[in-house]
């Protein structure tokens, strides 16, 4: 793609009440890409402003929960000139099927993008069965 299209502005998606929250502040839904290959399912989530230590990935009862906390980066004495976006924690849940090998899940955070690799369990990897000639 030589000339890619211009990037459109998308407002950050605020979540009203995903669950009972124990902390005050805004909650946003990260934009995600999910794709599947023969061996694994990969999830990419945009979480700008989240440090590696502030990501929580929780897997319980077949539900994958992503949480990312954003620390405010403004200094103490700064006053606002223009404010177009707000920051807050990221939160999103996905139901996960049985075919995932839950012990081998890997996560990596780079430039504000979380990459989650969910390998499929051995039994779920498609196998080609060859028919032998008699």
């Amino acid at each position: 793609m030589a000339d890619s299209k211009a990037l459109k502005l998308k407002e950050k998606q605020e979540v009203t009440a995903p669950a009972e929250q124990t902390r005050p502040g805004l909650i946003f839904t990260p934009a995600v890409d999910i794709f599947e290959s023969d061996r694994e399912i990969t999830l990419l989530a945009d979480m700008p402003g989240v440090a590696t230590d502030d990501v929580t990935i929780d897997l319980k009862d077949g539900v994958l929960t992503l949480t990312g906390d954003v620390k405010p980066c403004e200094g103490q004495n700064e006053s606002i000139v223009l404010a177009e976006f707000e920051t807050g924690r990221y939160y999103r849940q996905f139901p996960l099927s049985e075919v995932i090998d839950q012990n081998k899940i890997e996560a990596k955070l780079e430039n504000g993008v979380l990459r989650l690799t969910l390998p499929k369990a051995e039994k779920a990897i498609p196998r080609k069965i060859e028919v032998k000639a008699a």
Binding site: S4, K5, A6, L7, K8, K10, A31, V32, D33, I34, F35, E36, S37, D38, I41, T42, L44, D46
Partner: peptide, 17 residues
Amino acid sequence: EGENVKYHRRERESGKF
């Protein structure tokens, strides 16, 4: 992400700004 992948969701966008 390779040729043999099937996308379930595609919310992240690319482009110039």
